[in-house]
């Protein structure tokens, strides 16, 4: 192999040094040879583990469950957003006031009924005449 001599480009770097015995090219070549040789001579146990790791990587990444899980989260998010939008923008029911009317009617009806003896203050019954007079006075206010 014909390699260019890098020493000629940097004469000051190498003068008076034993580094001249080993040119850049030889250093590079030697380093790469050792590296490749070390790669080839990985012990069998480690080589087996590397092989198993490769198979596992290829199998794990190729499983369809990953594709499902990949789409599961975005699909769920879209569904939640759609549901929320539907709830927010749904028009109010036309008979929305009807329950209030019913409540008012029930309240009026309660006013017509006699008070429940169990829930009413006993003082009311003791002074019933007074409260009757008071109610009558409210309906016909006197002028002074």
């Amino acid at each position: 192999m014909n390699m260019p001599d890098t020493e000629s480009t940097r004469p000051g770097d190498r003068s008076g040094s034993l580094a001249g015995d080993l040119s850049d090219q030889r250093l590079q070549q030697r380093a790469r040879e050792l590296y490749r040789e070390a790669g080839r001579r990985v012990d069998p146990a480690t080589a087996g583990r590397l092989r198993a790791a490769r198979r596992q990587a290829l199998e794990t990444a190729g499983k369809p469950s990953h594709q499902v899980s990949h789409w599961l989260i975005p699909s769920g998010a879209v569904a939640v957003i759609a549901l929320a939008s539907l709830m927010l923008w749904q028009p109010l029911p036309q008979g929305g006031n009807r329950p209030a009317t019913t409540v008012e009617a029930a309240t009026d009806l309660d006013n017509e009924l006699p008070p429940d003896a169990d829930k009413t203050d006993p003082v009311l019954y003791q002074n019933l005449d007074f409260y009757t007079w008071l109610a009558a006075a409210d309906r016909h206010p006197t002028t002074r």
Binding site: M1, M3, P4, T6, R10, D24, Q29
Partner: peptide, 21 residues
Amino acid sequence: ARDDTGATAMNTAVDALGADM
């Protein structure tokens, strides 16, 4: 400037080495 010179030479050397290895 020295780095550039060195880098250029290095690149040439590596290219030559790369062609072989």
